[in-house]
Amino acid sequence: MSKKIAIFLVIFTAAILQVSFFPNILPPGIFPDIVLIIAIFWAARSGFDVAWPWAIFGGLMLDFIYFWPIGTNIFSFVAIVFGASYLAKRFLVADNLSRFFFLAAMVIFGTVLNGGLTNILSQSALGEMGNFRILLFNSDLLLKIIYNLLIFTAIYTPLLKLEKFLATINIRLKMAR
């Protein structure tokens, strides 16, 4: 239960940061996808079974705050989390450095896919199909990948520590029972 509350708080805070903090200090439209990064991290580390409810929660939060049609971010997050956990099962190794670079590659892949999927879904739902080229292929995407990698690098160690801390609490609770 405590683990669930902690993850809930992390995703909730990440969503607010993504929506209200970063857009104000970074160039317009190029804020980092912190919720997506966290979802990818958890999917690769814990597997799809653990990560999918959190992917839905994170996506739903963003859909509500961004005024997008409900389902847009959920679709993208669930698809990316599934892909990340599938690839992690096959390629993630125990070595720390390799693990970091593998997750960084997942972040790049997720950023591109998330940008494309959310654009296509939200714009086609709003009937603005004609604008895809401008939205998908611009220099902003490259900057966004860079910001996402920077944020991923910054939160990677804290997330590992949080994971370890939550696992310890879980063991202690089980032992107490």
Binding site: W52, I56, P69, I70, G71, T72, I74, F75, V78, A79, L121, S122, S124, A125
Partner: peptide, 11 residues
């Protein structure tokens, strides 16, 4: 199932 539900919700 989740993706299909999302597409239905979106459109």
């Amino acid at each position: 199932i989740i993706l299909a539900a999302c597409v239905l919700l979106v459109f």
